[in-house]
Each structure stands twice: as C-alpha cells, then as structure tokens.
Design a protein around this nucleic acid. Structure first.
Lengths: 340, 340
DNA sequence: GTGAAAGCGCTAACAT
DNA sequence: ATGTTAGCGCTTTCAC
C-alpha cells in the first residue's frame, strides 16, 4: 500500500460532485445540507479515507481546542492526580491537554508559556514556582491567554484555584497541641509560594491562639522535594531539644522525612508524631497510616479545567476573574500519639 | 490597554520596510540576511510585540513539533515517571508532549489516536490496554503517524520499547524458592497485555526449571488496579492452603495487596513474604522496605522519546522498526523471609 | 441548499 | 541579499 498524499476537502468535493464549502458544512454538521448530498459527501469521505486537518481548521477558526499546563513535575503525585482530573474534564468536551514540566525553573516556565502562546493554545493552567517574579508576570501577561493559576497567588487579574492550607495547618497543630505536644516542627515549602506562606500562617496562628510561642528553630522553610525533607528532618533530630511532632508540608517532603526516620530506626508514632500534607498511596499504606491534612486534588484539577471551559465557551467571557478557595481537612489516622 | 489585533509578519515587514519573506528568514535564523536588515526586523518585532503563529507555520511546514502520548492513567506513578522522562527529552529539542488518558477504554484509545492524527502531531507514543484488538490496530495504522509502543506487543511493524519482565519474575520466584517457599502466588495483569504474559512466563519458567508445579489457584490474572490487588489478596488468604509468598505484578496491585494485609492485620514478612513490581515511593518507605522487581522507568520514557526524535529528524527515517528490550533486576530489601 | 472565492499567517520557490 | 507570490487545507461570507 503506497502512502499517497492525504486526501483533502478538495478531493472529497470532487469525488462527491459538490463544492468544498459543502464538504465543510457536512463535516461540521451544519444543518443546511440536503440529506442526499450529505450522504454523498460521507460516502466520498469513507471511500477516500479522508480525515480533516485540524491545523488548517485551527488556522481559520483560531481555536485549537488545546489547553497548556505548566507544572513543576508530573511525576509528583500531587500534580499527576490534578492533571488526570483536568485532562478528563477537558477530554470530555473535546480539548486536549498539553503538559509541560518546568522543573521549577523560571527560565523554563517562561519559555513554556511563550511556546504555548505561539502554538495558539486556547488557555493555560499553571503552577509556577516563581509567583512574583516580574519576568513570569510579563510572560503571563504578554501571552494574552486565558489563564488559571493553581494554588499560587499571582498578582494579576486572572482566575485562581486556591486551597485553604492555613485552616488545615491550624487543625493539625491544634490536634498535636491537644495531644500534649509543645515542640512541633514544620518542614515547609518556601514562603515565596502561596502554600508555603499559608501553611506557615496556619501553623503560627494555631500556636498564638493558645498563647504559645513557636521556636524558630523548629520551622524549616525551603523547598518541596524529598531531599529537603530528609535533610531538615535530620537536622531537627540533631537539635539539643528536638521536636516531639513533625508536620511535613508537602507529599515529597513527607517521603524525605520518612526516609530520614527509617535511616535512624525511628518509629512513628512511638518516637515521633507525624502529620503529612496531601493524601497519597504512601500515607495510606504506611504502617501506621499517616494522619494528613487532606484536600480534594481531583476537584482542584476539575475546577481549573472547568473554569477554562466556561471562559472559552463564552459562558464566562467577560466575567470578573474568579477565585475558588477549596477546603482542607484533617484526616486523623495512626501516626500521632500523646506526648510521653 | 486595548487588545488590538495580533501583529503578523505583514505588520512587521511594513514596519521594518522589508518584505514578508525577509521577516520569515529573520525569525527562522536563515543565514541569507544582511546584519542591517536583520536588526531592523528584530526592532520592528520588538516594537510590535510580534510573536509568530505556530499554527500557520505548521500549516506550511507540515510539522507541529508535538508528540501525542496515550496512556491509561497519568496518576499512576508508573506512567507519570515515564511521561516526565519523555517530556524532558522532547522539551530539550523543542517538542511538546500532549498527554491523554484512556482509562484503559478501547473506545477512548481509538478516539484519542484519531484526535492526535487529525491534529497532525508528529508522532505518537502509546500504552494500550487492547494490544491485539483489530479496531486498535486499524486506528494505529490509519493514523499514518510514526508510532512507538511502550511495553505492549503490537503486531505492527513499529518501534517498541519493551521490558524484560520474564527475567525479573524468574529472579523473584527463584529467590522465594530459595527461601523455602513452595506456595507462591502471583497477582497479575491480564494475559492480554505483554507485561501480564511475560511476568506469567517468568513465573512458570522459574518453577519448572526446578521441576516444581504451580498451583493454578495461586495465579490471579486480571487487572492492574488496586481493587483487583486487594480483592485477589483477600481471596488468596481465604484459600484452604493459602500462599506463603506473594508477588504483586504491578505497583497498583501492590498497593491493593498492602491494603488487604492492613485490613487483616497481617505483617510483612512475618506473616507473608511479598515482592512488588516497580520501585515507587510506597515500596521504598514502607516498613520494611519492599523487595521489588525493578526497571529504569526514566530510561523507558527517554528511549521512547529519543526513538521518535531520531525518526523525525531524519536520522532514522527509513530504518527498520526497532525493538528495545530494557532489563529488570531484583532489588532485595526486607519484605521476604524464609518460610517458617 | 449549494457554489464560488476570499482569506487565516506563514514559508519557500522563484525572481531580481 | 531581498522582494514577490503561490499555496498549505480549511471555514465562511456572499451570491445564486
């Protein structure tokens, strides 16, 4: 079988004995076509094996039915679950999701935003690690794309899907406080991104509401990766007065913490109480199952996607930028014990 | 700031006082442009805020620099790690990855392959759950796209990146046999996909090499999800003669197994020896760390992406379909004990 | 209800 | 070295 040139609307039209415009009307299911010609066109399409070229179509219609998604790392379960939910939502209405990893690099984030804009995608969802960098804001603005920020406090009039991390942390700290813990450590993201700031805020508020001071040595803000979690956990254990409870402000930080504890043969909750953020396979099958500050990741992805769909469908064309604040809850399991 | 129409090459050309062809030469960095006009064009581009429209460009050049990736579920760490590696590799050479989840449905797989073909993506990587379904083969063939199958034995002359699951399973079984186990169970994927068949083959070969029979009741082939793992684990434990060791043929199956054991308060390796397939956060931080049949997922993603890059760059244009067989190894950790 | 024709924004072949 | 022009495959007026 020879790879002959792909048939186009012109080929279909001549085969069906109609004009190209008519072919277009048929494949776009517009009403104004007689049943007879419609059948003739479909027959020609089938005989030729014609498949519309969506690039050409996009060129005319100026819609690509493609959404870009810039994230730090799809292999982080946090993002892969959100991406799955977003993609499902989009796929259901005929959109495709273009996922790109930034590795948290500003340079790559900016490059990717530009790439998505040049490719004329219809909208962009993103999780930046450079929330308030001018180059980031500039790239975002000049893209002229409908934008949805996920869990990042971008100073731009765009749609945002935020999480109430502060509340979750307040609940977590109060719970530990009630168990008698007074030296609670927080290993956290940088305060240059919203989740870091919000978790910190909740952490401090819970303490101050009860008139308690927090020892600055117990707060470790920095990055979200496993290595940071492991390193900081180690450093905390080496303190003259180590904490009796740990809150890991991120699922990767938690894995790092768990590694560090494993290395030192420490057992949860016997030696240390532990609370994680975000409910993953790890927190669920760990023994004992880990108490977590949870949120509905599927809802986050779905919400972000739906916002874009609404904007693009004209439902939400001129509307003010929205701001969803999704809840967190404390899922109490077996990783915390009363202070001895 | 008004959203005036986006500037095109025509606008740039007239502003710079040159022809559109010259603008095209400049933005494509072709040599034949004098430094003077080049500068003038770049200036005009900057002043206008011109950004090339890649849809129009693709229409002419017939390349989109986009690769499609059809997978069952990006939230499965197996696929998200592969996707991350593939995307990194592609991004480095200017490609974007379009990830779509099939949810293992044939209908969605076929629809997505068509969608990618219509959108003129330059190549397609895929993990199908319907390896030998005629409709799948038809969709693949008629897409006329450069194809790379990941870990699936498609009966088509296309590039494949396979894994030597059989060897990994042989090693796992032998290890358990050496520990004295004689009732080893395998909870496995369907034999309708290559990993299922290959794992089964390795499992049986290891037994027969030592002249041992396998009890059919200990082999559970079906699906790759957590529920299947949990259900089958439960059923195995309810056997009159339950197994003393379990091999979970997939990372999600393993999570299901762990859940089932948790439910019955069974401890590994005291009550049961356990081996997983694929090394994830779960197998690493579980206590004890779980012995696994491991493989390099990053290499799988990278290899698949590189194959496509080579084909598209002309390096591997007319070459025969390739078939990579990546190795597996047994990582012995703490989840197996001698039979009591 | 259908045909004819004008582009969408860009690249590439052909002139000059 | 640069200008001119013909499309790429499709949708969408505008006639008829």
């Amino acid at each position: 079988m020879r790879t002959r040139k792909k048939p186009t609307v012109v080929d279909v039209a001549s085969r069906a004995g109609v004009a190209v415009g008519t072919v277009s009307r048929v494949i776009n299911h517009s009403e104004a076509v007689s049943p007879h010609t419609r059948d003739a066109v479909w027959r020609a399409i089938a005989e030729l094996g014609f498949r519309p070229n969506n690039v050409a179509r996009s060129m005319r219609t100026r819609v690509t039915h493609t959404i870009g998604f810039v994230i730090p790392d799809i292999s982080n379960p946090l993002f892969s679950v959100i991406a799955r939910a977003a993609e499902d939502t989009l796929q259901n209405v005929g959109y495709l999701l273009n996922i790109a990893n930034s590795g948290e690099s500003l340079e790559r984030e900016v490059k990717l935003i530009r790439a998505f804009a040049e490719r004329q995608c219809d909208g962009l969802m993103f999780v930046t690690n450079n929330e308030s960098d001018m180059r980031m804001l500039e790239a975002l603005t000049s893209s002229r794309l409908p934008l949805v920020a996920l869990d990042r406090e971008i100073d731009l009039p765009i749609d945002k899907v935020m999480t109430d991390h502060a509340r979750g942390l307040r609940l977590a700290v109060k719970y530990l406080l009630e168990l008698g813990h007074r030296r609670i450590a927080l290993i956290n993201a940088s305060d240059r991104i919203a989740p870091g700031r919000e978790r910190m805020r909740g952490f401090k508020e819970a303490h101050s509401e009860l008139g308690l001071k927090v020892d600055a040595a117990l707060i470790r803000s920095g990055r979200l990766d496993q290595d940071f979690g492991a390193t900081q956990m180690g450093a905390l254990l080496d303190l003259k007065r180590p904490p009796t409870a740990i809150i890991a402000g991120g699922n990767q930080i938690l894995v790092g913490v768990l590694r560090a504890l494993q290395l030192r043969d420490l057992t949860v909750p016997r030696d240390l109480s532990l609370i994680g953020c975000d409910d993953t396979a790890v927190t669920q099958v760990f023994s004992p199952p880990i108490t977590v500050v949870d949120r509905d990741l599927v809802q986050i992805g779905r919400t972000a996607a739906q916002i874009l769909i609404d904007r693009l469908s004209g439902q939400g064309r001129g509307l003010q930028p929205s701001r969803a604040l999704l809840p967190t809850e404390l899922k109490i399991r077996g990783s915390c014990a009363p202070r001895r």
